[in-house]
Nucleic acid binder design. Sequence first.
DNA 1: TTGGAATGTCAACAAGGCTGACATATGCTG
DNA 2: CAGCATATGTCAGCCTTGTTGACATTCCAA
Lengths: 169, 169
Amino acid sequence: MSEGRMTQGNMGESLLFLTDEQLRQGIEAMFFAYRGFTADPDRILADLAYGRAHHRAIHFINRAPGTTVNNLLAILGVTKQSLNRVLRTLIADGLVESRVGTSDKRERHLYLTDAGRALESQLSDAQRARMRAAYRDAGPEAVAGFKQVLEAMMDNDMRRAYVRLRDGS
Amino acid sequence: MSEGRMTQGNMGESLLFLTDEQLRQGIEAMFFAYRGFTADPDRILADLAYGRAHHRAIHFINRAPGTTVNNLLAILGVTKQSLNRVLRTLIADGLVESRVGTSDKRERHLYLTDAGRALESQLSDAQRARMRAAYRDAGPEAVAGFKQVLEAMMDNDMRRAYVRLRDGS
DNA sequence: TTGGAATGTCAACAAGGCTGACATATGCTG
DNA sequence: CAGCATATGTCAGCCTTGTTGACATTCCAA
């Protein structure tokens, strides 16, 4: 992008990379890749009477222990009724613990129990294994590009949430 | 992260790019980006009493006009009952046409009508606009990496379907 | 002619979204 | 202190989109 003048190969690429055909390929790549992305955890969850929604909650509670319900709602982008249904089962099953806030007692702070952390590991190990294989196949430069494009694709709110998590809230 | 003496920004990256932390970032990037990826079509579809399932069917029928139901089932990865419910409404609403096969009359070949193509355009224009913006922000080299990683993340079956579509079935 | 493939359809069910309404605690502000 | 706002939980009902199982029809191919 910032090299001087273009070689012909380079220029062709630059001129073509915004064609509808290229964009369509990216769209289909996202579609098919997302299926692979969720496939392994989904298989594990199916045996446990849990679904993708439980996985997401567990992931982000593990990521930011002590996070509040409101926080989680903002990250997950669902209604509190929808999240609550999921949290209720996770708490009932002893995977998540909900503690009343100390400074503000209206808030509930969420933590994984040991059992919750065990499931989280199992799920994220599976998902990371696929990610690791993909990263290895593609190489570090491809990975940098991958993240750049994904980040540019996010809504502003989500990009902020992503960066906050990434850089340590 | 990228300062420094060593060409080692590079070497650090190479050594670190398979850490769990890097993998987790990729996982979260996929999660947040996929939300953005589907957001614009979802908004359009909400007004039309259609959902993401209709969008997917319309997309792949447009992509491969005359495709059979079985073909579509393999690509979408859902049951025929689930797909059929979607196709029935699209056919009833005059967006999709189903023609009995000529060589094999058991097969149904699916085509978009003019109205179907109009909706397809509306949906994919919205999705492409976001993709285009992301591509432009990230640049052609990032885009190449993006596609490489996504392709490596797919299940084998899906990768085959993706490549077949990409290279012109 | 017969088996199997491709398709369509019915019924029932579940997950996980949604809205709307309402209850309870708690914090904050005038 | 009164009253409003905030954070959370919960009930009820609805929708989409996935699932399984069963069954009918049509038609190709051995």
